[in-house]
């Protein structure tokens, strides 16, 4: 079409605003979008793995350091068969979950207490902020000295990492509850327990779940760090030990397993959070 045609068309034609395919058949559109979304979701990692395989098998990357996905898969099968992976997974997960549970419960309760009682907050918040910045792994030797070589110091360290993330977020969440939510409660004569149940807990819930997701990552990170330096079981040990034995395939089995643990852990926390805060509208 020439410029002259365009000119003529704009003067002779009316511009119309019509429903598009989305508006004409929203259900079909939504279904199609869901299918495309799922293809993208599954397709992207598959594509990545295929690319990895190709790069390694064509010899572009050194197979000793970058084992192909198929090598990792073989090693994976082997480690599942010998029970090594399951064993490592169980001991790591026990530590993570125990530490996470203790740390988050303490962090949330502590955060609410500090959020609600001003004197407590004034007294303790600066100390918490100060201690928070100390890298947790730096105090592992101290904990080992105090509690010996068992699981206890490891669980405590994970709990500490989780504790600081949750307590700081919880304090912030409690202190930023708008007056507009507290005043109606007061005007209806709510007592402390009622205010807690009807206002404070639901109001801070969305923020707490964000903190819990961050804390889940923190917990996995700390666990791997601890297992690198101390002990002879768990996924961290498996990765470290594979390096010492120059077993790159097995190392990748460990790394991939840690990644999967992290993903599953975070997704679970997120899912629980969404179930518990149905009023929050997620935007996609």
């Amino acid at each position: 079409m020439t410029a002259v045609d365009l000119q003529r068309n704009t003067t002779s034609r009316r511009i119309e605003r019509k429903p598009g395919p989305v508006e004409r058949n929203p259900r079909a559109f939504m279904r199609r979008r869901r299918i495309i979304d799922n293809l993208l979701r599954i397709g992207a990692p598959i594509l990545l793995i295929v690319a990895w395989q190709l790069v390694v098998s064509t010899g572009l990357l050194d197979r000793r350091f970058w084992p192909a996905p198929t090598d990792v898969l073989l090693s994976f099968q082997e480690n599942v068969a010998t029970g090594r992976l399951a064993e490592a997974l169980v001991s790591s997960m026990t530590r993570i979950l125990l530490g996470y549970l203790i740390g988050s419960v303490a962090g949330i309760l502590g955060g609410i207490a500090l959020g609600v009682f001003r004197p407590l907050r004034i007294a303790l918040e600066p100390i918490i902020s100060a201690v928070y910045t100390v890298p947790k792994l730096a105090i592992l030797p101290l904990l080992l000295l105090l509690f010996g070589l068992g699981d206890v110091p490891k669980i405590i360290l994970i709990a500490l990492g989780v504790f600081f993330v949750t307590i700081i977020s919880t304090i912030a969440a409690v202190t930023s509850i708008p007056e507009g939510y507290l005043e109606p409660a007061r005007s209806f004569g709510a007592n402390r327990v009622q205010t807690f149940r009807h206002i404070i807990v639901p109001a801070i819930m969305p923020d707490i779940f964000v903190a819990l997701r961050l804390a889940a990552g923190q917990a996995v990170l700390l666990m791997i760090g601890i297992e690198f330096v101390q002990g002879d079981e768990g996924l961290g040990y498996m990765i470290w030990n594979s390096w010492q034995l120059f077993l790159a395939d097995r190392m990748y089995v460990g790394i991939v397993s840690v990644a999967l643990v992290g993903v599953v852990f975070q997704t679970t926390v997120k899912w629980i959070g969404q179930r518990l805060t149905p009023w929050e509208k997620p935007r996609n």
């Binding site: 005043e183 109606p184 005007s187 004569g189 206002i199």
Partner: peptide, 16 residues
Amino acid sequence: PLAAVVFQDYSIFPWK
């Protein structure tokens, strides 16, 4: 109850 208040905004709870 003696009094109940209808506030201008933000006063109904989004979680209920």
